[in-house]
């Protein structure tokens, strides 16, 4: 019992105690950002690694969460219309925006919006037995459509630039180090709780059922289960996680824009999960953090070189280590014990 929880406990202590003490505020902010991505990755690990649904549109859910939060933050500032609306000549607050002045509504929508969208899409798609590559392509098309919609609705969404310049969250000054440290702790805490909950789910009967659906959807049907329901529910759970991650991301990073949630960022996270190890939830989290860090570190230094490196990395991981870093580690450990 203790041994099983030791790795998690160690990581939790480092993340919750050591990191805030040791890292300077800027680095801590970056880490908080990676942890937001890790929450999305956790959802991908659940939907894809366990359930076999390759979702290339998690950015959409992330974006719904992010934009909900951003709308609240813009309205909480007071002082009339949000800045970008003034710039694009909007004169009255659009009706869509009005309820987002309420933080409970905004946060609720950040999670329930993505869940609802995933439930509808999942029901329509999985019930018709659309799966595998077809599902992947549809989710990717959704991500592409979402970006074009956000860019086009300038007056509602801030267009290409999205929304930025947020000053306070629940009365706390976002520029303050203490606020950012608090935010970091919230993000790390949410990730920890979601990780434990997802792990519990994966180890439960539901988790077994999910793996069975992944490996033999039609066979599961003849065991008396409805695979479409199982997939839809799981997909919705992963969408909810992405939405929550988006809502946390906005105050941490201070911006939300279409470029953060389109086809490419959605795919990048899937690849991060593959690099970490898709079949292990820890692999998904690890992959997101490592790839996030690598991108920051390397794209600053090499710019174009980063794309070569990223491309080469995917090719290598997919060919040589399809189970990712976690899979490699497992293989090494087995090699040593035998």
């Amino acid at each position: 019992m203790i041994r099983r929880h030791l790795p998690f406990a160690t990581v939790a202590v480092i993340a919750l105690v050591a990191a805030p003490l040791l890292l300077e505020p800027f680095r801590l902010g970056l880490l908080a950002k990676y942890l937001c991505y890790a929450i999305v990755a956790l959802g991908i690990g659940l939907a894809w690694g366990q359930g076999g649904m390759l979702t290339l549109g998690q950015g959409v859910f992330f974006g719904l969460g992010g934009y909900s939060m951003a709308m609240y933050l813009k309205l909480a500032e007071g002082g009339g219309l949000p800045d970008f609306m003034v710039w694009s000549g909007v004169e009255e607050l659009p009706a869509l925006w009005v309820p987002f002045a309420n933080p409970v509504f905004a946060l609720g929508m950040a999670v329930l919006g993505p869940v609802a969208l995933a439930l509808v899409l999942g029901t329509l798609v999985f019930r018709q037995r659309v799966r595998g590559a077809y599902f992947a392509i549809l989710t990717q098309a959704l991500a592409a459509a979402m970006v074009i919609l956000l860019v086009g609705q300038q007056g509602l969404t801030g267009g290409t630039n999205g929304m930025t310049n947020f000053f306070e969250l629940f009365g706390q000054d976002l520029a303050e180090d203490s606020t950012q440290r608090g935010l970091y702790l919230v993000v790390a805490g949410v990730l920890g709780v979601l990780y434990l909950a997802t792990r519990q789910l994966v180890q439960s009967r539901y988790g077994r059922l999910l793996v069975a659906v992944r490996d033999g959807e039609d066979r599961v049907r003849f065991l008396g289960y409805d695979p479409a329901l199982v997939k839809t529910v799981t997909f919705a759970a992963s969408a909810g996680m992405a939405g929550l991650a988006g809502a946390l991301f906005v105050p941490v990073v201070g911006i939300i824009s279409p470029a953060l949630l389109g086809v490419v960022p959605s795919l990048e996270l899937v690849v991060a999960v593959a690099v970490g190890g898709r079949h292990a939830l820890a692999g998904a989290v690890l992959g997101a953090v490592v790839m996030g860090y690598a991108k920051t570190a390397l794209s600053e230094q090499f710019a174009g070189g980063w794309l070569y490196l990223q491309g080469a990395l995917f090719i290598l991981v997919m060919t040589l280590a399809p189970k990712g870093v976690v899979g490699l580690a497992g293989r090494l450990r087995r090699a040593r014990t035998t």
Partner: peptide
Amino acid sequence: LAASFRRPLWSLARRR
């Protein structure tokens, strides 16, 4: 897995 098919989905979330 085969034996549990009559259980409601939410009750599967517990470990066997």
